[in-house]
Nucleic acid binder design. Sequence first.
DNA 1: TTTCTTTCTAACAATCGTTGCAGTTTGAGG
DNA 2: CCTCAAACTGCAACGATTGTTAGAAAGAAA
Lengths: 152, 152
Amino acid sequence: MTVRLPAVKSPAELTELFRQEGLKITPQRVSIFRVLHDNLDHPTAESVYDTVRQEMPSISLRTVYQTLNDLASMGEIGQLDLGTGSARFDPNLDSHHHLVCDTCGKVIDIYADFDDVRLPRRQLQGFRVAATEIVFRGQCPDCSARADRATR
Amino acid sequence: MTVRLPAVKSPAELTELFRQEGLKITPQRVSIFRVLHDNLDHPTAESVYDTVRQEMPSISLRTVYQTLNDLASMGEIGQLDLGTGSARFDPNLDSHHHLVCDTCGKVIDIYADFDDVRLPRRQLQGFRVAATEIVFRGQCPDCSARADRATR
DNA sequence: TTTCTTTCTAACAATCGTTGCAGTTTGAGG
DNA sequence: CCTCAAACTGCAACGATTGTTAGAAAGAAA
């Protein structure tokens, strides 16, 4: 098990990338880039929307989804489904794993390689494995405390 | 890494369990029990519905959801969200992991304990981990073949 | 700068999986 | 049988996400 560090792309870099792809640079997109860069969390489309709307109240949720999907298909951000109802976008591209609170939905990154999580060929049955995701599920300290209080 | 075997509960056992809980034994429920028992797959509510409907055309999708949720909250089946659009119910309760085809959504059980997948306390930050899920993502043999054919 | 083409955005409607609700039906104990 | 709480059905509603389209705006060319 090895420990590593996160890494994200800046708004300027993303802007340049869009330009190279022949995509237009709009204030909406730049705003979204900024929010993603300032956010090491795992925001939902809705939460990016809420943040962007503070500086650009007219933006539509549709545009946020569109831009996040574009970024995801360009491979610039990741997309997670952790069973919390809505998809989460992950500005952190490093291969990493997740610690999820089943009570409040909070998500924490785990930077660690579990080198021995490999399947023997016999179990693969011809599958080509492209990625291995590990999700640790449980309760965050806040929710644990709240639960303890309720039981008393 | 250790290898183990699956296990499921029979319709009779589930019936008995419901009786003990004071829940009624209805033909709908028994039908659903049977389908789950014959199914080592990871059916969606919709697919259980389709199967049950063959012998009981009048059953409603609502009832299927209801019963599956009941079973899940009694801890008799598991519930998975593997990002394939809809929730999957897992009649297999043994702790196990999953191999998912990102193209067609097929899910295969992996019976193996990865004993060394543990988080050091320093990374836990007070979290209580209740379960560890490992998802291997990739392409199943069928979809690989189809993709190869398309590229040629 | 003006014009033109192309792409984007906003608004709205539609879809999908799932759940809430209201009225009707039914299993199980008396 | 009867009764009655519990379960069933059908449908409406809901949250997340996507399709559509008219109008606006960006970038290129003149």
